[in-house]
Amino acid sequence: MSLTPKEITHIATLARLKTSSEQAEFYATQLSRIMDLIKQMNTIDTSDIEPMSHPQDPALRLRADEVTATNLREAYQTVAPATENGLYLVPKVID
C-alpha cells in the first residue's frame, strides 16, 4: 500500500473530513490503488516541459472600477444554516 491509514488520517485532517480508524483503513486501500494509477505518469519524461495550468492564456481580464453588483446579503443569507443581524453564526473561536 502506498498510503498508510496514518497518512490518510493526516490527509483527512488537512481536508477537514472527520474519519474513523476503520474508514482510514478503507480509504488507505482505495486511495493506494488510485495512487498506483497516478504513478503511471512517471513512465513519461517531462523534463524541459512547461507546466500547463489552464487551456487559455492565463492573462486576467480587467474592467473599469465601477460598482456593478447590488447588495444581496439578505438573499444570500436566507440559505445559510445560522445567521443573526446579517452575520453568519459559527461556534465560538475566541474565549
Binding site: L3, E7, I8, I11, A12, L14, A15, L17, Y27, Q30, L31, I34, M35, I38
Partner: peptide, 13 residues
C-alpha cells in the same frame, strides 16, 4: 467525493 478531495489534498500537499 471524499476520495477525490483526499487525493487532491494529497497531491497538493
Amino acid at each position: 467525493v471524499k476520495r477525490r478531495i483526499m487525493i487532491g489534498t494529497y497531491v497538493l500537499s
